[in-house]
């Protein structure tokens, strides 16, 4: 597999999906910027990314993330992923619900000098809020 693609996969599956925060320093540039519409401001550098990952893992301690597809071209890597976890900590001001949620997202990483220099993520925030029961969902869960 393309080296950058493997690094991007590890950031999602091993850092966010397994809490291996020590990998961030190896994979993320000092001046990196991470864009995620769910964050109040872009994550800045390795520490910002660790903080973002910790925030999600505090809310979903059993969070797992699976990369379903990777497209790599030159210095960019695009990943389609699925995340799954149980809501056991506060998230967006929402007290723990104990509900398990499954959401999908897409991340595009730009690599420079062997590390991620910039990252753009969009994920199904609305779907998560619907699954946690704070926004109405049209469909009903099977009985």
């Amino acid at each position: 597999m393309h080296e950058n693609a493997n690094g991007s996969r590890r950031l999602i599956e091993e850092v966010f999906g397994a809490g291996r925060f020590e990998l961030v320093d190896e994979l993320v540039a000092e001046n990196a910027i991470g864009h995620d519409p769910a964050l109040p401001e872009p994550a800045s550098g390795p520490e910002g990314l660790k903080q973002a990952a910790r925030g999600y893992r505090d809310a979903f301690p059993d969070l797992t993330m699976k990369v379903e597809e990777i497209v790599a071209e030159n210095e960019r890597v695009a990943l389609r992923w699925t995340a799954r976890g149980t809501h056991r900590g506060e998230l967006f001001g929402i007290a723990p619900t104990g509900k398990e949620a499954t959401v999908t997202g897409i991340t595009i990483d730009r690599w420079a000098g062997g590390k991620v220099a910039e990252s753009w993520t969009n994920w199904d925030t609305l779907g998560l809020l619907q699954q946690l029961g704070v926004v109405p969902a049209a469909a009903k869960a099977p009985a």
Binding site: R84, T86, T97, G98, K99, E100, A101, T102, V103, T104, D124, L126, G127, L128, Q130, Q131, G133, A137, A138, A139, K140, A141, P142, A143
Partner: peptide
Amino acid sequence: LAFPSPDHLPCPDCGASLPAAGDAGH
């Protein structure tokens, strides 16, 4: 266009994430 619905929803009894289309085996 329709208001989006999630692909998964929690089981009302145990909170497990299930396909919204139905999971008869759960």
